[in-house]
Amino acid sequence: MLLNLRQVTFGYRSPLASPLDMEVQAGQVVALVGENGSGKSTLLKTLGGMLLPLDGSLELEGRPLAEYGLRELSKKVALVRMGLAAPAEMTVREFVSLGRSPYAGFLDGRSREDEGIIDSAMDDMDVTLFASRKVAELSDGERSRVYLARALAQQVRLLLLDEPDAFMDIPRRKNLFVTLQKLSREKDMTVVLSTHWVDYAEKYADSILAFTSKGMLEFAPASRARELGLLSWAEV
């Protein structure tokens, strides 16, 4: 079991939702859906170990998340936020190369193996073509893929994505979900992504975690989410 949550509550001071029980296998895709402001980003931060749960037990690969050292955790979990502003001089390759930072030595060098991993992460996200362009000059959609490539280069077991599809057009969005599904299987990596696109979540995710109404958080297999009422809040 990659992720195991028992009665976890999260938030900054008071819990944002009912206690959550959730088990996720390695290689699965979990879609996190809910209205704006329901607590999706806060939950992702909690899963990424940047915010301690208020209560309950949160285990990653059978070990409490709080027991991991900072560097150790960065080899297991990466959180990707699309709103990040990249510095003006940074090229795509330099940015993706940051993903190897947790593995680097004292002087932050990169081995030949690291360079190979960077190359294949850029290939996976289809950004090799503009490797030497500046991140700040890319379109929003291109930049999102570069941000994802950094996380892939980090070779984590748990990839947390905060609305990775926010800036993408429909073909790109479909492509993203297909790619994430494929990568999670190939690399045995679990992906938890928040999204507003419920129909994509239903089609491409293995399970759905939904803020169904004020303070209610429910978890179910994607194939049964609609009949169990997890998506009724999103119906037009």
């Binding site: 940047m50 900072l70 150790e72 960065s74 080899k75 990466a78 959180l79 940051l98 930072s101 947790p102």
Partner: peptide, 9 residues
């Protein structure tokens, strides 16, 4: 936050 995510103290 980003730097911390790379395991940097």
């Amino acid at each position: 936050d980003f730097a911390r995510g790379l395991g940097i103290r």
